[in-house]
Design a protein around this nucleic acid. Structure first.
Length: 270
DNA sequence: CTCCTATCCTGCGAGC
DNA sequence: TGCTCGCAGGATAGGA
C-alpha cells in the first residue's frame, strides 16, 4: 500500500542505516517468487560492494553501488527491516548481510513487489515510461493542464497514471482531489487551468506533508513498514463512504473508477 | 495510439 | 467461536 510518501520515508530510513556505507557480504535467498523471480545470480555481482547511497524514482528504491544497483519496489505489502539473527518471519524473501553484523530483510506477503539488478550506469527498464516526479518543478500546472487536454479519462484515473505523474496512489489521489474540490470522475480534458493549478498544488502539499509526518518517526525504522506509515488519522474522504464530509457534513460517496474505489463529497467537489 | 479490464497474492474484516 | 467471502491495490499485459 505504500505510495510515494511512504517509499520516501523508507528511503530516508535506509539512508540512515547505510550512512557508513557498509559492505554487502552475502545475499541469502529464502523464496525467489516475487512478481518476477528474484535474479540471485545477477544480484550476487553486488557482493563485496559498498552501499554508496539510497535513491528513489517513483516508488522504486535503488541501493547504489559501484558495480550496479539493487532495485526494489514494495508493491502492496513489501517491507525492509533490520533483522538481527533470530528474527526470521513468514514471507521473508531475502536477507542482505552487511559488514558490522547488519542484516536487512525484505518481506512481502502478497508478493506484488520487485527485487531486481540494474547494471552500473544503466537506466532501469522499469523507468522508461515514468512521468515526472510530483515534487519536482517539472510537475507544474502548465504541464498537467496541457497534458490533460487530450485525456478522455476521469481525472482521478489520469493522476494515478504513472506516465502522467508518478507516485500518486489511490489514497492520496482521493485526498488531493477533495482538497482541490474536484470530483474524481470529472473528465480530465474538462479541467480548467485554475483547477489544474489547484490540483498540482494539493498533490505537492499532501505528499510533502505525508513525508514529513512519516519521516518524524524515522528513528524507529520498523515503524515505517506497512500501512502504519500513512497519516491515516487525517484522511478526509478515503474509506469514509456514508460518513459525513468533514467540511460540510454531507454524506460521502464511493464509486469504482479505473478499477479503484474512489471517495468524494458530492457537495464540496465539482 | 487511447482506454479498459483482468490478473497477480494473502491478510483482514464483515457477516452469518 | 469459527467459517466463508469479498476487498484491498501497483503495475502490466492484452483486448477492444
Amino acid at each position: 500500500m505504500p505510495e510515494l510518501s511512504e517509499v520516501e520515508v523508507v528511503r530516508l530510513g535506509l539512508q540512515k542505516i547505510f550512512q557508513d556505507q557498509p559492505t554487502l557480504q552475502k545475499i541469502e535467498l529464502m523464496r525467489p517468487d516475487l512478481r518476477f523471480p528474484i535474479p540471485l545470480k545477477k544480484l550476487n555481482s553486488l557482493v563485496g560492494e559498498r552501499i554508496l547511497s539510497v535513491e528513489r524514482r517513483a516508488k522504486y528504491l535503488l541501493l547504489k553501488t559501484a558495480k550496479g544497483d539493487l532495485l526494489s519496489h514494495l508493491g502492496m505489502t513489501g517491507t525492509w527491516r533490520i533483522a538481527p539473527l533470530g528474527d526470521e518471519r513468514d514471507h521473508d524473501h531475502v536477507y542482505l548481510h552487511f559488514s558490522d553484523s547488519l542484516r536487512l530483510a525484505y518481506r512481502d506477503p502478497r508478493r506484488f513487489g520487485i527485487l531486481d539488478f540494474v547494471p552500473f550506469a544503466q537506466q532501469p527498464r522499469q523507468f522508461k515510461h515514468l512521468g515526472p516526479e510530483p515534487l519536482e518543478i517539472q510537475f507544474s500546472s502548465q504541464y498537467l493542464w496541457s497534458l490533460l487536454r487530450r485525456k478522455q479519462t476521469p481525472i482521478k484515473v489520469a493522476i494515478m497514471d504513472q506516465r502522467v505523474v508518478v507516485g500518486v496512489g489511490n489514497i492520496y489521489a482521493c485526498e488531493a482531489l477533495f482538497a482541490a474540490r474536484i470530483r474524481p470522475q470529472k473528465q480530465a480534458s474538462l479541467l480548467t487551468q485554475r483547477q489544474a493549478e489547484q490540483l498540482v498544488h494539493e498533490i505537492k502539499k499532501i505528499l510533502t506533508r505525508a513525508i514529513g509526518e512519516g519521516g518524524s518517526s524515522i528513528s524507529d525504522f520498523k515503524a515505517t513498514n506497512g500501512s502504519s506509515g500513512y497519516f491515516q488519522t487525517t484522511f478526509k474522504v478515503y474509506g469514509r463512504q456514508g460518513e459525513p464530509c468533514r467540511n460540510c457534513g454531507h454524506p460521502l460517496r464511493a464509486q469504482v473508477l479505473g478499477g479503484r474505489n474512489s471517495f468524494w463529497c458530492p457537495r464540496c467537489q465539482k
